[in-house]
């Protein structure tokens, strides 16, 4: 193409320049699948943390990931949330967003929330401020300088406070919360961001039976509106919430199905449940 043709192409009045078109941020789930992970491999110094892993998660589903230590559960979350680069494979959010092309902040803004294994909240802030900082919206430094809460956002925070049962602790410093309350606050922070997909790493670790029960209720109620992926070791807890369970082993999917199917799967019995029983 010569220069004039290029110029003409550039000056066409019936099209907009590509960089001016707002990037489509809404996730396309027209095929009911919200997360496509295909052929994912990650290795650290020769150790294959993920080995050609394939995983599909439907929109609105509550999925449990189980597996022994080192099975690759956390690495998988790291790749999906942009923390770790993979060696090969692909990860798509809906049909239109390539997760591997975005960084952590961008992925969070796309609507993927992540709860860490160790509850991580902003300890020097109150519960309320923790939720305020988690709200969906502009996350730039300049807009934060003049940002003020709108009435709608206050309502949102109040609703989240009710959902996680911390209404009375709203002005307490997050650092003063009990372990279980911190776990809930962190889940609440994810909810405040109105995510499409929630990745939750060991939500009941260190919780009392009563707290775990409440957490199970909370997570079950979230499914449907949100898609929830839970990583958990506690088999009793998984049984209480899971409809579909995916078993990871040595960086690949070993089995998938309902809890009963998985527990009766001979491979699973051999490598995972067998050790426990």
């Amino acid at each position: 193409m010569n220069v004039t043709a290029q110029a003409r192409e550039l000056l066409r009045r019936d099209t907009t320049w590509p960089f001016l078109v707002p990037r489509q941020r809404a996730v396309d789930v027209s095929h009911q699948v919200i997360l496509y992970v295909e052929g994912l491999s990650v290795s650290f110094d020769g150790f294959k943390a993920l080995n050609d892993l394939n995983l599909y998660v439907n929109d609105g589903e509550l999925r449990c990931l189980i597996g022994a230590n080192g099975a690759g559960k956390t690495t998988l979350m790291d790749v999906i949330t942009g923390k770790t680069r993979c060696d090969s494979g692909s990860a798509w959010f809906g049909r239109n967003i390539d997760l591997l092309a975005h960084d952590e902040a961008a992925i969070a803004q796309l609507g993927i929330g992540r709860k860490f294994q160790k509850p991580t909240v902003f300890e020097a802030h109150t519960v309320y401020t923790n939720l305020e900082l988690s709200l969906k919206g502009s996350k730039g430094a300049w807009s934060a300088l003049t940002a003020a809460l709108t009435g709608e956002q206050r309502d949102r925070i109040d609703r989240v406070l009710e959902t996680i049962g911390l209404v009375n602790a709203r002005y307490q410093l997050a650092g003063a919360l009990s372990h279980g309350q911190k776990q809930w606050l962190e889940i609440g922070m994810l909810l405040a961001a109105e995510p499409r997909l929630l990745l939750i790493d060991e939500p009941v670790a260190g919780m009392t039976a009563e707290e775990a029960e409440r957490t199970a209720e909370l997570l079950t109620s979230l499914a449907g509106e949100h898609t929830v992926i839970v990583v958990e070791h506690d088999m009793e807890f998984v049984r209480s919430i899971a409809r579909t369970v995916t078993v990871l082993h040595q960086g690949a999917v070993l089995a998938e199905g309902t809890m009963d199917q998985v527990q009766n799967n001979p491979d699973v019995i051999e490598v995972y449940l067998g050790e426990d029983a």
Binding site: A105, T120, L133, A144, L145
Partner: peptide
């Protein structure tokens, strides 16, 4: 301002802030 609260959040738990969508380096 909220900027200040985000900054304190970054001080205490930078990965958490990043996974909430803040470009902490900015």
């Amino acid at each position: 301002s909220r900027l200040g609260r985000v900054v304190v959040a970054i001080r205490d738990a930078e990965p958490r802030a990043r996974f909430l969508g803040y470009r902490t380096e900015g």
